[in-house]
Amino acid sequence: MRTVLLRLLGALPALAGVILVTFLLTRVLPGDTASYFAGPTASAESIAQIRAELGLDRPLPEQFFRYVTALAQGHLGMSLTTGQPVLADLTARLPASVELTLAALLLAMGIAIPLGILAAVKQGSWADHLCRIVVTAGVSLPVFFTGLLLVYVFYFILGWSPAPLGRLDAFASAPPTVTGLYLVDSLLAGDMETFRASLAQMALPVATLGLFALAPIARISRGSMLAVLSADFVRTARASGLSPRYVILTYAFRNAMLPVLTTLGMVFSFLLGANVLVEKVFAWPGVGSYAVEALIASDFAPVQGFVLTMAILYVLLNLAIDLLYGLVDPRARMDA
């Protein structure tokens, strides 16, 4: 418990840094928010009026002070692109991104870890080659390409997949919000129809994102398994006559998990923010595309809110992973 608190306290300076840097970066960027939002026939006066309304005519330190004061009260500002408070936008959109990312990560893990282990155990076999092909494909195919290809084949040509209209079909209604994850919420509400519908909507984006996440996980699983398999204690275990299955799963795999966990943490936080292209292709209302749209329009508040949320998530995630380390490997427990 103390460890958790200490770690959280230790993250505060980092967060302060993130706040300052994103503030400065968004102001340094070229682009004029006011003239962008002034509309087609804006006169110089109406641009100035908007600038004043947004407080952009004030000196930078004052703007920063206002921003931090608002932040302390829990206000992340207003988004100009959606016209809503950034906090509301992020809370509405984060579950969509989290659901997509988690599902993709689970799918990737389900394939990549066994594949990695198999490739390491049977080096040079068909499994090893398959692993190599999958990894290369996952890394080299750009996400938007895989996404469009999947849409083309499974929706456009074959018609197996539902229309890529976002999280749910236009005529379906969302389950009552509990967690914001449609799969979970629809199960909680006992609504199997919505569950199936949202699962069907998720299939293609999850596959696209999963393919992308597959590569690093499979690579690391294979590499770290190889290292562990050649370690002395595995040889001892084998020499002691333990069954290969027992040696691999109990001795080797558990020890090989540490680097895999680290990678998983990185892949997760990376996917969460970086699945912009998947969100675009599948009209998925997530945070990534939200932040990018805002950035293109020089809409500062959402960008700052997004970066801050990501920073907080990253801190929490790292903490969770460190705690998991302790569970997987007692040696990694932080008691010093």
């Binding site: 849409v151 229309a163 969100e279 009209a283």
Partner: peptide
């Protein structure tokens, strides 16, 4: 519905 990708919008109308 807001569908950001034009390719997706085209697929939706064609299907």
């Amino acid at each position: 519905r807001d569908i950001p990708s034009p390719s997706t919008r085209r697929a939706l109308i064609e299907r």
